[in-house]
Each structure stands twice: as structure tokens, then as C-alpha cells.
Amino acid sequence: MSSPGLFIVKAGYLDVLAQKDSVIHRLDPRVKLLTTLLFIVTVVSFDKYHLSALLPFGVFPIVLIVLGGLPAGYILNRVLWIWPFAILIGIFNPLLDRQVLLHLGSLDISGGWVSFISIQVRFFLTVSAAFVLVAATGFNTLCLAFNKLGVPSIFVIQLLFLYRYTFVLADEAGRMVRAWQLRTPLRKAMTVNTFTLVLGSLFLRAVARAERIYQAMCCRCFDGTFHPAYRLKWKMADSLFLIACILFLVFFRFMRPVTWLGEFVTGMFS
């Protein structure tokens, strides 16, 4: 049986990684958020038949993983875990687009297969970049960055609360599921009726908890505004990192270093 509590803690391991100290961890969260978004936009801006031009973008997550001292195996594991979804959404392309696009020796490759592989490459690049962002920044620091970049405080605060109490409620939900399971050993999943009852009482508990939390906040003189205990400082290193990333993205997006390199190498052998 999968335990929601355990599951969420496993996912939360990304956040544990964020407590490490490295060149990447020390960067301002805003710069990491911006470069990651730029990276994703650049990757998906290639049209669907582009394949070779996408590959060098792998440098971005790989370098961040190494400089950030992040466990590549864990991140790859997380990416692979949801890979089936990407296969599912791409699988129609080879079936529907049979126009031959490439000839590799005697092998004819259809446009559908090229775009299928392109979707998979995009998937690996965008998903690993997002995981690296969280693992090198941490959710709370990211929220601070959202706030600094103009997201309203009220949204950011309840987002922080959501994250904090996901661990508590997932644990509660896990206990309820276990209690149900122990008395219903022959079933794999709840019936809709049981499910609504469990959900209903979980909701009432959540509301009661929210009330107690609000009381606890009031007891410590909460007056409606939040004062973050940490401040963000934009440093020289942040500007340099941003510029380096933009140069990297522009170079690989608009120049054709891959083609040059390929032509150079194939030229040597022919």
C-alpha cells in the first residue's frame, strides 16, 4: 500500500537537497528562477522536427547538478518516474506523421519519429531543469523570490502554508487510509462512499487545524502583514550567472554550433 505521508516526504527530499551549500545554492533565487524559465522557453521554442539542436541544452542541467553537488541519480530517478507520461503524449506522432524525413543509410525515419524523440528530449530537459531549480533553491526561498518578483503576498503566504501543512495532512490522510485498510483487507481502493466520508472528515480536521493555527499566529501578535526573516541580496555573482546563461542560451538557440561541429567531424572522416 502506498502511504501518502511517505510519498510526500520522498518528494520533499528535493527540499532537503536545497539546504546544501554550493555556488549554485548561494545564487539569488530570483536569478535561478529567471534562468530556468528562460531555459525552458528556449528549449520549447524549437520547432518539433529539431532534434540535434536541442541536445547541447543538456549542458545546463548537467552543469547545475555538478556545481550544486546534487545527486544526479536521484534527479534522474524522479524524471524517469514520470517519463511514461511523456511517451504517452508523444506516441501519436509516429502513428500519424509517417512522412519520411531522414534517411540514415538504408533506414527511413518518419517525421513522426523525429518529433516523438524531440518531445522526449524536451521532456527530459524541461523536467530536469525544474527539479534542479527546486533542489538548488528550496521551496520557501522560491516563494520569497515569487514575492520579490511581484506575486502578491497573500498568495505567497498561503502557498507557504499549503506546503508546510501538506506534510501534516498527508500524514493524517495516511493514518486514515491505514485504519481503513486494516479493517478492509480484501479491497485495494476505497469505494466512492467511503472516500467521501474520509475526505469529509479530513476536511473538517483541516478547518479546525487552520483555526488553531490562526490563533497561534494571533498569540504572537500577527497583524495581517508578514515580515520575512531573511532578505534577498542581489550580488555580482548573480548578474554574472544571468549574463552567462543568456549568452549560452542565445548562442545555442541562434547559432548552429552543432551543425558546425558535426560537419567538421564528418568532414574529417570522409
Binding site: F139, Y163, Y165, R212, Q215, A216, R220, C221, F222, A229
Partner: peptide, 30 residues
């Protein structure tokens, strides 16, 4: 509330901030 400090039964209700430091700082900052 400045003179009366209240410790709740379920610490999870009281520790709502992201880290221990921020949580302890919550009151003074307010």
C-alpha cells in the same frame, strides 16, 4: 498578547513557518 505567551498542545499548529529560525523570529518581527 505581548505579556501572555501561549504554547499550544499540537506543536504543528504553532510551528507554521518554513524553518525553525523563521518560526521563532515570527513573533519578534511582528
Amino acid at each position: 498578547r505581548r505579556t501572555v505567551g501561549m504554547v499550544f498542545q499540537d506543536s504543528d499548529d504553532q510551528l507554521f513557518m518554513p524553518t525553525v529560525f523563521e518560526d521563532v523570529a515570527f513573533g519578534p518581527m511582528n
